[in-house]
């Protein structure tokens, strides 16, 4: 039966040629896949003179002196890691709290809706506006805190003086606010995916709300929350403008969270516009390291997330 039908179709001319639209779509899909490779290829090619000249020393040395053609990004790698880890430290408790708040029924649905809107608004505000706001609000607060901390806790290397407004701490506080929506959204999904039966079973055994949350709901959602944190970390590492405006962009290594620091993304933002010769190649090399770090972190985050979705898919 199917054979004659196909004949009728081809006679009426519908399948006369190859499906051009399909080829067009396939072409677009192919371009998308090749784009990532193209990005990496272009950056490696432009970075090549610097890669050849400095090799791995680029990562392990800490001099960035463009007019003497000495380039090393160790302080910027450390600054990237330190600022984003510190941001996670601030954002994690807040993000998970909001996720619990949104998935539990403490308050009326309208308040929860407002809260969701607030978090979505935080995600919509441009990075450069966070930077401007940080200059006027967070820098004075951190400076005041820093002066106090140096006076009373100055013995600890983390709080050794002098305290600056443009510092690692300032950048981390603003970064924490910026990555909060990422952590909240993914954690909330993980909490919402916890099967109702588990919660009901826990209540039936006499648990209070928070006993249920700590002993059953959070452990079940834990992989998703871990993924949320890792993806938030990835976002924090790549965040550019607000950090460039607040961190002080120093290439000096320091233990103190109150002194200026620098990140890879901030380095690119500050120097690319006026860079010449080997400096351009070295900035490309720095961009390559930034891609490598963020891709690595995001791949782990995505893998954990996918594993979580698979693991909880069966339970209902």
């Amino acid at each position: 039966m199917p054979a004659p039908q196909r004949d009728i179709i081809s006679q009426s001319g519908y399948r006369a040629g190859p499906d051009l639209f399909k080829i067009l779509c396939q072409g677009a899909a192919l371009v998308t896949v090749l784009l990532l490779g193209w990005i990496i290829y272009e950056i490696v090619e432009s970075a090549w003179p610097s890669i050849q000249k400095f090799g791995l020393d680029f990562i392990t040395t800490s001099a960035w002196v463009p007019n003497r053609e000495r380039f090393g990004v160790l302080p910027f790698i450390m600054g990237t890691l330190a600022s984003s880890l510190l941001a996670i430290l601030f954002a994690f408790p807040l993000g998970v709290s909001i996720a619990i708040f949104l998935s539990e029924n403490f308050l009326s649905p309208s308040i929860r809706q407002t809260m969701r809107f607030v978090v979505e608004m935080l995600a919509a505000i441009p990075s450069v506006v966070y930077g401007l706001w940080g200059i006027f609000i967070i820098i004075p607060i951190v400076k005041a805190f820093g002066d106090w901390a140096v006076a009373s806790l100055g013995g600890f290397p983390l709080f050794s003086g002098p305290a600056y407004g443009n510092s690692l701490l300032t950048a981390s506080v603003v970064l924490a606010i910026m990555i909060l929506p990422t952590i909240t959204a993914i954690s909330r999904n993980a909490l919402a995916a916890v099967p109702k039966t588990l919660r009901e079973g826990t209540y039936a055994l006499g648990a209070t709300r928070w006993e249920a949350i700590f002993s059953v709901i959070l452990p079940t959602a834990a992989p998703g929350i871990v993924a949320a944190t890792i993806l938030g970390l990835g976002r924090a590492m790549g965040e550019t403008m607000a950090v460039a405006m607040l961190i002080g962009n120093s290439s000096r290594l320091s233990w103190s969270v109150l002194s200026p620091s620098g990140t890879l993304a901030g380095l690119l933002a500050n120097q690319f516009g006026e860079a010449q010769g080997l400096q351009v190649n070295s900035l490309m090399y720095a961009a390559l390291i930034l891609i490598a770090i963020t891709l690595f972190v995001n791949l782990i985050g995505e893998a954990v997330l996918r594993h979580t979705q698979k693991a909880t898919a069966g339970i209902r």
């Binding site: 990532l36 993806l231 590492m237 790549g238 550019t240 993304a265 690119l268 900035l283 930034l290 891609i291």
Partner: peptide, 12 residues
């Protein structure tokens, strides 16, 4: 993966 790439890399 592209959503996770820092926006400044698009500029680079």
């Amino acid at each position: 993966l592209l959503t996770g790439i820092p926006s400044i890399i698009c500029g680079v």
